[in-house]
Design a protein around this nucleic acid. Structure first.
Lengths: 355, 355
DNA sequence: TTGTAGGCGTTATCAT
DNA sequence: ATGATAACGCCTACAA
């Protein structure tokens, strides 16, 4: 009977011989069916106390049977709020990003927000297009993850006059809100762990030079070594790009050293994946010949062989935090400028005592 | 000067002492600035040939300087098309889904569509909420990946009267369009590969019983064994849930058999991950003691130890195909009902000759 | 408690 | 080639 009613309602306002699919019922259709005015329908559906309980119930019943769904686009036009946010990621096909997306989406949904997702592919042109699309869609706020071109398009975002939240931004600016991980403390913990296992020649396999997260992590690494009285060894610091392939090339430089490291801290788990593979390719063993530590604790970290010692980022939680605080900002409340989240060292089997 | 102009335009239509951020300039603001009517602005910005080239240029310049962005919500209201689609995934925190999302998003963006992303978490309640949100947002179409509750809410979708594309749906229905992988042929190829290596006791570690993809894959497995004259061995067929943890439990049943298998075909790479871990936990080696094959070819498949033999699904391409065909459907064109994509066996090192 | 009127920012349909 | 005017579907006054 649901279909029948829906058909009637839509059909009623529909001229004969329509090409495209039947229109969805509008608030006026419901009003006609319920023999009231459309504002009354509007009130009834919003549970306004200003409407008679009985008529409200009747209206809700009729609306339900007709399959009526208030148009968020019409509502957005008049209220000037779309209850929509834009989420920019470099690529969802990256486990870190997808976890963040999950957290954002979940929280958004719970609060009646819908999420526009857009990949930038770290391409500035595309990123600009994406933000323009968000502007035209009149999103109420924006979340950007791991942006590597932040500085480039931040003015564009500002122009839109909506709140912006950054998650692990690579170029922290002064005027925006962000959720950041304790890069320094996290990598320091991993490095201290290796120092504690007796390692002295500890390498760092980083991300591209110059990114904030890499800079902070390398600083944490240095701090741990300094504290242990281990002098700087520039030849033990190499750079990948956060992905396995580049890590394979990068670690090769370490393995071919006259005096190779006995342990390596990787910028992230993806790099560790490549590093471990290349180490094995050279006939070496993890952790007997070389200990490997990662960062992120992606889902596969406990399934690598050996299971990966790493620094956990609560990625989903970070997404949730970003969204929760964006909601505050969107409702005009103030929110802390920078939310810092703790990283946690997870010791597994890819690290062991220096042999 | 950009900011100045924008401020002027917005300020002009703004009463003094506003609480919320300044309004974005509207088409009327631009019309006023350009001393033309707003329909002319509309035409100019759409590159309509009906407007004088010079005035068009002037209008575009002014609009640009004012930072004007036409409101997609207002446009959507009048055109009755939002150029928006809804994408439902069980969870983006699954590498398969995120690759599909990537493909969809990319293609959507290239065609001027924006994507609403929603996780269902395989929760029917949530899935229903999500679809209702899409209905209210007046999306032009919907894509659903790997749905496990399809049958439950498909009527709901139909009610919305927009085209729907399913990607690897678990309950293929007659009335919807879909992109599917060759489950049967793919798993048959993997099984044939194992048969070719001399294996006779080949197990199948599946997904939850009853899902279409699992049913098809197990059929492919059986077909390969049948062709080789290997009799059915019901004790060699076990079920996980497509995730590593459940696979660990499931494969345990195989390993504790009096006569354990020498090879196992896994429903997907995530299952293979758990299987390999549990095999090692029991002190057995892959592939020397037992060969393992996966399905999907997720990014980590070439980084497992040993690298995983698997059946590749062109996940991103499948997302693109889904979106491309949805676009056709949305413009009223017809499109094939079911798009079938070929799977490809990728032989790596997790499978070897029976010892 | 309910109805009437107006407007949100566009595009579409007429005129001119 | 351009302008006036009317939708689109909803919400928010204000009037009754």
């Amino acid at each position: 009977m649901l279909d029948k009613e829906a058909g009637k309602a839509a059909g009623a306002a529909q001229p004969a011989g329509q090409k495209r699919a039947l229109r969805q019922p509008s608030i006026k259709d419901i009003a006609r069916l319920a023999r009231v005015s459309h504002p009354t329908v509007s009130r009834a559906l919003q549970n306004s106390p200003l409407v008679n309980a009985q008529t409200a119930a009747k209206i809700r019943k009729i609306a339900d049977e007709a399959g009526y769904r208030a148009s968020a686009v019409a509502r957005g036009l008049v209220t000037r709020r779309t209850r929509t946010i834009g989420l920019v990621v470099t690529t969802v096909a990256d486990p870190f990003a997808s976890e963040v997306v999950c957290g954002v989406e979940e929280t958004a949904n719970d609060h009646g927000y819908s999420v526009f997702l857009a990949d930038s592919n770290a391409d500035p042109v595309r990123e600009k297009k994406v933000v323009q699309a968000f502007a035209e869609r009149r999103v109420d706020g924006i979340i950007v993850t791991s942006s590597r071109v932040g500085a480039l398009y931040l003015p564009l975002l500002a122009e839109m006059m909506v709140p912006i939240m950054l998650v692990n931004d690579q170029y922290p600016g002064a005027f925006v809100h962000s959720v950041m991980i304790s890069n320094f403390e996290g990598m320091r913990a991993a490095s201290e762990h290796l120092v504690g296992l007796g390692h002295r020649r500890i390498a760092y396999l980083g991300d591209k030079f110059g990114y904030a997260s890499d800079t902070e992590r390398v600083a944490g690494y240095r701090a741990a070594l300094d504290a242990a009285g281990i002098p700087a060894m520039p030849e033990l610091i190499v750079h990948g790009d956060g992905k396995p392939e580049a890590a394979m090339t990068a670690i090769e430089k370490l393995l071919t050293l006259a005096d190779p490291p006995t342990a390596v801290c990787c910028y992230n788990d993806m790099s560790a994946l490549g590093a471990m593979r290349q180490i094995r390719a050279r006939g070496l063993r993890v952790p007997e010949d070389i200990s490997v530590a990662g960062f992120d604790d992606l889902f596969f970290a406990s399934y690598t062989q050996p299971p990966l010692t790493t620094v956990r980022q609560p990625m989903r939680r970070m997404g949730q935090l970003a969204m929760e605080n964006l909601i505050k900002l969107m409702s005009g409340e103030e929110s802390v400028e920078q939310i810092k989240v703790d990283a946690e060292l997870i010791v597994r089997e890819s690290t062991t005592m220096r042999s």
